Amino acid sequence: MQFDKRAWLDRIKSMFLGFDKPLALIVFLLLCVGIVTLYSATLDMPGKVEDQLRNIMLTFVLMWALATVPPTTLMRFALPLYTFGIALLVAVAMFGLTRKGAKRWINVGVVVQPSEIMKIATPMMLAWYYQKREGVMRWFDYVVGLLILLLPVGLIAKQPDLGTAVLVFAAGLFVIYFAGLSFKLIVPVLIAAVIAVGSIAAFQDRICQPEVTWPLMHDYQKHRICTLLDPTSDPLGKGFHTIQAVIAIGSGGATGKGWMKGTQAHLEFIPEKHTDFIFAVFSEEFGLAGGIVLLTLYMLLIARGLYIAANGATLFGRLLAGSLTMAFFTYAFVNIGMVSGILPVVGVPLPFMSYGGTALITLGIATGLIMSVARQKRLMQS
């Protein structure tokens, strides 16, 4: 039997037809930058790079698998996945595992964090709902969508896990907005937020006193916001993270100190340097020039995702791809803002850069879903 090299090459190529090449290339470049930075950040933590490489391999397998699943099939899993995720969140609230003062995990044979499921399940559920209501949507459909969104966000915030709650809320809100919610309804909320932030900044000396209690917020959340406004008020406590990260970013200058030559990171001044604060390590070693390259990659990632969303074949695909793409933006914006000292520290990883299997796999699943939307459009055109 003669070996047909061309037939085998065609067969291999067909296995990767689901991959959107531009999107896959951008993700690959971000992962490369992440591994290079992680290697420097974890010189004193043997095994972290190897663990991350295994996480990346698993992520690409999941990304490939989901990219080959048609969005019409994905729709069937939206309601069951959302319901399952809510059930797990309720179970966490009732008898979850508590670590470091937070009840976020549950043992179901293996220890899982259900809030990670909701980063995908919530936008999928909302996209499914608005697909079902396509052509007959009214104002109360946006109210229903908001209720669908607030249920998991409220359960996650109560754990407490403000960072994940923000990410789930943002992903769901983008679905509602892309489904047709008028921007005029969002403007008053933005104005109220600006007024609230301005008021906190103007009266921080009074409202940040220990005896003052903030409604609807835990003491540690109040302390984070007050420390953000004045990190020097607690330089060896909550303000330490922000102060050291800003010093690292500033000391990088225009071109950086060079790979593996960052003093703040290697002298252990930057906390969580391989996870939430990896941007500080990157900025110190590669400077402003490296930061511009990294931000350009993120902008290309978002631009490609929005292009796929805009050209989706169905409303479900457009809403899902659009919301997941903007979730990438939220991840990057919150993390970089947090490390730069313009947002409170909330524990949000930098997409495809921070060490961690759970967050990376969640991002890979999201990318695979976006690629699924792109593949459906290509198949319809061929």
Rank of each mutant, 00 (worst) to 15 (best):
F240V: 08
D51F: 04
I117R: 02
E284Q: 03
F240M: 11
G322T: 00
I35R: 01
Y82K: 03
P71Q: 02
K238R: 04
T358H: 13
K377M: 13
P71I: 04
V36K: 08
S372P: 05
L369S: 00
F316K: 01
L363F: 11
Q244T: 02
H218M: 00
D219H: 07
F174S: 08
L343C: 11
Y177K: 05
A265I: 14
V168H: 06
A78K: 03
S233Y: 03
S199I: 09
T42W: 13
I207Q: 06
L38A: 08
I370K: 09
P152R: 06
I195M: 13
L146V: 09
L162I: 12
I200T: 05
R76Q: 13
M75E: 14
M124Y: 05
P80E: 10
L216H: 05
G101W: 04
K132A: 07
F240G: 01
A179V: 02
G287W: 11
L379S: 10
L236W: 12
T275R: 09
H218C: 00
Q381T: 02
L228D: 07
L319S: 02
T98P: 03
F169C: 11
Y129V: 07
G305I: 07
R6V: 12
V27E: 14
A366T: 03
W139N: 08
L97N: 07
G364E: 04
L295K: 02
A170R: 01
G250K: 14
V112W: 10
I200V: 14
I195V: 14
Q2H: 08
T330G: 04
S382A: 11
M75C: 01
A78F: 08
T83F: 12
G356M: 01
F203I: 00
I191D: 09
F60Y: 10
G109I: 01
R99Y: 10
V144C: 13
Y142H: 05
A127G: 06
Q209L: 15
R224M: 08
A91G: 15
L319I: 00
L319F: 00
L300V: 13
I370G: 13
A248K: 06
D141T: 00
K238C: 01
M45C: 00
S233N: 09
T122Q: 06
C208Y: 03
I86F: 02
A78D: 09
A332Q: 12
I243C: 12
I365T: 12
I247V: 15
E134K: 06
P160W: 12
V49W: 00
T232K: 12
C208F: 04
A91F: 10
T325G: 13
P344E: 09
I370D: 15
L319P: 09
W259S: 02
L319Y: 03
A254R: 00
L297F: 15
I247K: 10
T37K: 03
G34N: 04
K257R: 15
V246C: 05
L167Y: 12
L320Y: 03
C208I: 14
I200W: 05
F95I: 08
W259D: 02
T367E: 11
V189E: 07
M137L: 15
S283Y: 09
R11K: 10
A359G: 02
P344G: 02
L17D: 06
F316D: 09
K184A: 08
R104W: 02
D234N: 12
I86E: 08
G239E: 14
T325E: 15
Y298P: 05
F286M: 08
L229I: 05
D4Q: 14
